[in-house]
Each structure stands twice: as C-alpha cells, then as structure tokens.
C-alpha cells in the first residue's frame, strides 16, 4: 500500500518537518493578521469616508481573488513591477497576512457593530466613563465573540498554506512528492500511502483546532 516508505530512514520525520513549514507560515500570518486586522477593523467603524472606501476596495479585492492568484501576483508580480526579488516564503507570508487581515478586520468590524447601543448607554448611566465602558463592558464581549472566529481563521489559514508548494516552497506535499520519486523502484505504490498520510496529517492539524473553536462558541453563546 505504500506506507512502508514512511518507515524508511528519516522519511516520516521529513514529512513532519514539511508540515511544520506550512504550519509556521500560517501561524506567523495569523499573528500578523490578528494584529493588523484589529487596527483595520476599528478604523473601519470610524466614520471616515476615505478609510471606509479604501478598506472596502481592499477587502473586496482580496476576498474575491483566489489566494493562488494573490500568490502569483506577489511572487511573480513584485519582482517585475518593483524590481524587488522576494523569496517564495516571504511572498507567502505577505499574501496570507494580507488575506488574513482582510478577514480579521471584517470580523472585528462586525462584532463591534453587533454590540447594541443600549450596552454603551447602560454602562454610561451606571457612571462608567468611555474608557471604562470599553475596558470592562465592550471589549470583553467582543473578545468572546472574536476568539472562536480567530481560531477558525487559523484552520482556514493552515488549509490555504498547502498552496505554497505551487510557488516552489518545500512543504509537506512537496516532501511527499520527493519521497515518492526517490522510492519509485522499491515502492511503486508509495503514492497511495504517502498522500493518504499527508491527508491525515492535515486533518489532525485542523480538526482539533476546529473542535476547540466550536466548543468555545457554544460555551460563550450568550
């Protein structure tokens, strides 16, 4: 069935380190996205027409374009237009951060808007000032809404990072391909075992995180 290849030498370790490449890119991108997304999300709730227009266009473009196209634009395009030579991994980080920031900012904007005005009013009427209202009343409510959604973003990010092999980054799928190539003679069926393993590895990386998000969402439903 082709699983035996994985037991040979360091093959399985290599596969795992390939997975780590993908995970690392997604974790760094998520961290950047959460930070920038918060800022952009708050900016979007301010009534500044220019910011709103620019962020609208940014959001719409990023969200309608396949991430694959964005990767090509940054990886191949920047070299040409700006004469910059950026590595594949940096391109991936830029693209996924741009995409994650767009998604995140929309979530932040949405949850800020979902807090009813009466929450502010009742807080003010208790004598809390604006700062206290945000720190003790509004932000804790938003955080509860945001955490499950941000965790979901992580799983979406991990799944999307599988694309980076298409711009030549050696991640888990690429490592799998190399292992299959190297053992073409001795294990002709390696493709089945190796790709099934990669499939399961992705599942094992995403599924628990998704469950956690669902659990928190339920727990904090009200």
């Amino acid at each position: 069935m082709g699983f035996e290849v994985l037991l040979k030498g360091t093959n399985f370790i290599r596969l795992l380190s390939g997975l780590w490449v993908a995970l690392r890119i997604s974790l760094i991108s998520v961290a950047i996205s959460i930070f920038l997304g918060m800022i952009l999300g708050i900016l979007m709730t301010l009534k500044a027409p220019v910011i709103q227009a620019v962020s609208r266009i940014y959001l719409e473009f990023i969200r309608i374009m396949p991430q694959m196209v964005l990767l090509f634009l940054v990886y191949f395009g920047t070299t040409r237009v700006f004469n910059l030579n950026i590595s594949a991994e940096t391109s991936a980080l830029i693209v996924f951060s741009l995409w994650g920031t767009a998604e995140m900012s929309d979530l932040v904007r949405g949850s800020l808007k979902s807090i009813p005005k009466i929450q502010y009013e009742s807080s003010f009427s208790l004598g809390l000032n604006t700062y206290q209202t945000y720190v003790y009343v509004i932000v804790p409510q938003i955080v509860r809404r945001m955490i499950p959604l941000s965790i979901n973003l992580i799983t979406r990010m991990i799944k999307t990072t599988s694309l980076v092999m298409m711009i030549g980054i050696v991640e888990v799928l690429k490592v799998g391909q190399q292992i299959i190539e190297a053992n073409r003679k001795s294990s002709p069926n390696a493709a089945f075992g190796v790709y099934l393993t990669v499939f399961l590895l992705y599942f094992l990386a995403c599924w628990p995180i998704g469950r956690l998000a669902k659990y928190l969402e339920k727990k904090w439903a009200n």
Partner: peptide, 22 residues
C-alpha cells in the same frame, strides 16, 4: 469533518495520484 478539515490540493493529490495505486 474530514473534508472540511483538509485542503482541496491534498484531496486532489490523493485522488489523482494515490487512488490509481488501488
């Protein structure tokens, strides 16, 4: 659960390159 938690690219690799071995 399985298909929501794996990338399409990996699913395609498995179907296109893996399954023919069976």
């Amino acid at each position: 659960e399985i298909f929501r938690n794996t990338p399409l690219l990996v699913q395609l690799f498995f179907i296109y390159f893996g399954l023919p071995k069976l």
